[in-house]
Design a protein around this nucleic acid. Structure first.
Lengths: 206, 206
DNA sequence: GTTTGTGAAACGATTCACAGCT
DNA sequence: AGCTGTGAATCGTTTCACAAAC
């Protein structure tokens, strides 16, 4: 497949959200212009985004909501389920375990780990926090595709190496560091400090 | 000022993080190449990023760590403090109130709000959750520059309108919706569902 | 008449490459 | 000699504009 811009992938995800709203409202068809207006982009952008993957519309009519939603789910790989582990049972980690959006989008959290003995054994949403020392073993048996890292920055790279060695293919990283991973592993980093600083910049330079 | 690419702002934030590490290690000067290696980019990119704001280095020598860090803090507007309110006292909201990174980066959380009466009155990190109905009044007296939205998607736009009317200039949005705001207000959205779907895409198309 | 799909044009960001300073 | 600062070249993404389908 041709190389797809990251920005296109993000927009496909947005479009899918809108289509699901439209589905809920019983709307049967939608035009690129309507999706564009909803997503703050242009109709040409919407059509170009789709064109990377094929042609899903009917000229003069637009797109049928259900069919397009189905295609986008397929493209985004949301027509299957993933197993995920959470590493770090601090405030954010334990909040994430309880986040319904994961399950809703096909991600099943199968375990949560922490290094801190005082946190091991605590139950979050039916999941008992396990000792990080169990992680390498556990990865061999449960074989999760995805890991969510919510450790302090200092621990994140070390944890990453264990996860990668254990066969994890995707990482959602909340630690404020740039993780080094082999090519076959994908990382998406959510860096709060960075977002705050970008906000600060926008407020300062106005 | 010339229009600065968002990607440049994000990298400046990264460079600052590295410089702070170097400061801690007592390293006095650094070259664009060293910063680039640390940040996964190129030395030309680093220099170009800086060049939007002036010339901070010495040819043949590089940059002095302390001076450069100071300049970046200035550019990013981190040489002052901001008042912030958190709206939504759910799992993520209450975890964020306790997040030390905010205070560390100059953001003081001055209040937290929720619509749910059963949550009002609960104390998080010394801050008593207030009824969302108090928000318009409170904004007039405390005048926070920044708001952090951690409500369900359905409530986010309504809350945004109240915040904007109350003079908030920057919003960090964790609700999975695109907020509509006037031009003078900046929004940074952290959309977990979207990050997960981008990860799913990366795993699927390999 | 309306809306898609798509090459071509325009725009914006990154990389190159080198003159100029230390 | 080493490294910065920057105009020029390259690369990638967005926008334009229109022929083709309904």
């Amino acid at each position: 497949m041709r190389k797809i811009p990251e920005s296109t992938v993000r927009r496909l995800s947005l479009y899918l959200r809108f289509l699901e709203e439209f589905e809920g409202q019983g709307i049967a068809t939608v035009s690129s212009g309507e999706l564009a207006a909803r997503g703050g982009t242009t109709s040409a952008q919407v059509r170009k985004d789709f064109s990377f993957f094929g042609s899903f519309g009917k000229r003069g009519l637009g797109y049928t909501v259900q069919e397009l939603a189905g295609r986008l789910r397929e493209i985004l790989g949301l027509d299957r389920r993933y197993k995920a582990v959470v590493v770090g049972a601090g405030k954010i980690g334990s909040a994430l375990v309880q986040y319904r959006g994961f399950r809703l989008r096909g991600f099943d959290v199968v375990a949560i780990y922490d290094r801190d003995r005082t946190k091991v054994g605590i139950e979050w949403d039916g999941l008992v926090t396990r000792d990080i020392a169990c992680l390498p073993q556990d990865l061999q048996t449960s074989r999760p595709e995805i890991a969510i890292i919510v450790t302090p920055g200092e621990a994140a790279q070390q944890v990453t190496d264990v996860l990668v060695a254990g066969g994890v293919l995707g990482i959602l990283n909340f630690a404020p560091v740039q993780l080094v991973v082999p090519d076959h592993v994908s990382v998406k980093t959510v860096n709060l400090a960075l977002e705050l600083e970008a906000l600060s910049f926008a407020l300062t330079n106005r």
